[in-house]
Design a protein around this nucleic acid. Structure first.
Lengths: 325, 325
DNA sequence: GTGAAAGCGCTAACAG
DNA sequence: CTGTTAGCGCTTTCAC
């Protein structure tokens, strides 16, 4: 930077200003500086900037895994929006191990990320206190709760479970199954599903859980086990579309007619859900839109004013009713 | 850090050493420092460390988009391996826009990433020179070439295209189609495919391209157009599984028997490829393994020794022959 | 095994 | 609109 300053015949601050607030510099000076920058191929050291200003223009995000298309899509949407305002995405994966989260949070705080995005709303006490103490804008996502660490943007997993139950109940199903990944949000879906069924007084639920990340094979195997414990199963709600695809596959193998003999419902509405046979009835979540919403919210929050808007943002869900249920 | 040093009755350097090279500090001193760190809840500022040492423990990666499962899987594998050695992943997306890459590279160099991962082997001159000048370990991936910027790990897209052609030719197909995303690697697959068919002297190829990122609908629409220009089409090679899934869907709609009336081949072997109807014949790429391999290579390269191994790493591909071709 | 001094390259705050 | 003066919080020498 000193070299650039010297070449342009100005002070270092001026170079700094041309880079961060070009409008605050006289056009002629600015042009000279920009010319020097180009000529010398100068690339500013952003770490030094971060150290001096304690603003990194980096947003950290923690997801269980990128290999679930729904989280990948959320990150895609988020990164895309952030890029527009010059922010970058630092990514962390927990692989569904809760202890991993706290370490990642430490590392992110250590890097002075300007904001943090977490998946889900259940976090260790350490995570909550560290984040509150650090005062970093934080967004929890893919779920909803009343007392977010800072902000939460997502939808009610319980309500989604209820909506699925209501649909299945209306179709006349009475013997229910749930095939779910063993993780927090899937459990909430089960809770809503189970309670709605219990309230109706009209059925029982057998449950089979699978270790995340979910695979199509897990779905097939899970359905097989469900069928063992409840041969008269009439409907199965899978906590994600991957498991549902596996269940559908197993039905085909066993010549179980879907939805006549067994209704199958998924979750998240992956692109393939509409393309498989039979087309899968599922809970539609706009994963990419969720990420974009998070990005927009952050953009707003990190702006000059920081207006502290609503803490809870419900982006909702809908039922994509197709042929499988 | 000063606080910790004071609390432990040592100098700041000692705290620094406990953090970076614990073994170089006497056990008793180390314990005292660690206690102070825990008691004060001290989180080191990694940016300051980066500034002083010019090592960031961050690896930058640029992909076209995360919403293609194959790239997401590669990033998943990469991030997982890097995390083990305390590295983090800074992610950039180009959305298939070539100009975006250079800006991202600048930003990454500005952050002093310890290494950079790029998708593909065709990059602007600016990117190549900047990277060479910066001397950052760089890995290009998802393709192969003879003169990588630094290292390349992937497979030959041309060879994959040839292998598909050979398989289809052996099945007796003579009227070929190619349905491909409009991007570099897909074009290479087409090239290999086309040349192998030409060499056999046994057929023609009609081509239809789609704007990335690919969708199932693009695949369906693309096949429809291909069928218009060549009603006697016997085989179609799709540059990715998403397009192939769409093609399969369109076949079902039109009651075209696959593979009897039309053979369909995909690329990358997504989990659904084995689960759809009919199961999709495709080129299998171990996307996650690719990312892991990159991670391992980087880990090695960034280690104390930096042994400068091979520059070109061919991870290969294989044909997953199922029912669709 | 431990410490003192000297920056890393930038931005903040204040002058002018 | 531009410059001066101080750091930001670490790690690197090099002594001891």
């Amino acid at each position: 930077m000193s070299d650039v300053a010297k070449a342009a015949g100005v002070a270092r601050v001026t170079v700094s200003r041309v880079l961060s607030e070009p409008d605050s510099v006289a056009p002629a000076t600015r042009a000279a500086v920009q010319k020097a920058i180009a000529r010398l191929g100068y690339v500013p050291n952003l770490n030094a900037g971060t150290l001096a200003s304690s603003r990194s223009r980096i947003v950290g995000a923690i997801v269980p895994t990128l290999s679930n298309a729904w989280f990948a899509d959320t990150m895609d949407g988020l990164a895309k929006v952030l890029a527009k305002t010059g922010y970058q995405l630092l990514l962390g994966q927990t692989a569904y191990e809760t202890e991993a989260e706290e370490k990642l949070v430490d590392a992110f705080i250590g890097r002075r990320v300007d904001a943090l995005v977490l998946t889900g709303t259940s976090h260790s006490k350490g995570v909550r206190t560290k984040l509150r103490k650090a005062g970093i804008p934080t967004i929890e996502c893919w779920d909803l709760c009343d007392d977010p660490i800072d902000m939460v943007v997502g939808f009610s997993n319980e309500a989604a479970g209820e909506a699925v139950a209501a649909h299945l109940l209306a179709r006349g199903c009475r013997r229910f199954g749930f095939l779910g990944a063993d993780e927090d949000r899937a459990r909430k879906r089960l809770q809503g599903y189970r309670e709605a069924i219990a309230r109706s007084g009209a059925g029982s639920v057998v449950v089979q859980s699978a270790t995340p990340p979910s695979s199509i094979d897990d779905g097939a195997a899970g359905l097989a086990r469900l069928l063992e414990s409840e041969p008269g199963l009439q409907a199965v709600f899978c906590s994600n579309d991957t498991l549902a695809l596996g269940a559908l596959l197993e039905c085909r193998r066993r010549a179980i007619a879907v939805p006549r003999d067994l209704a199958v419902v998924g979750f998240s509405d992956l692109p393939v859900a509409a393309a498989c046979v039979p087309p899968l009835t599922t809970v539609r979540i706009d994963s990419r839109g969720l990420g974009e919403r998070i990005g927009t919210l952050l953009e707003h929050r990190l702006g000059r004013d920081a207006p502290e808007g609503a803490r809870v943002h419900d982006v909702g869900f809908s039922l994509a009713i197709r042929d499988s249920a």
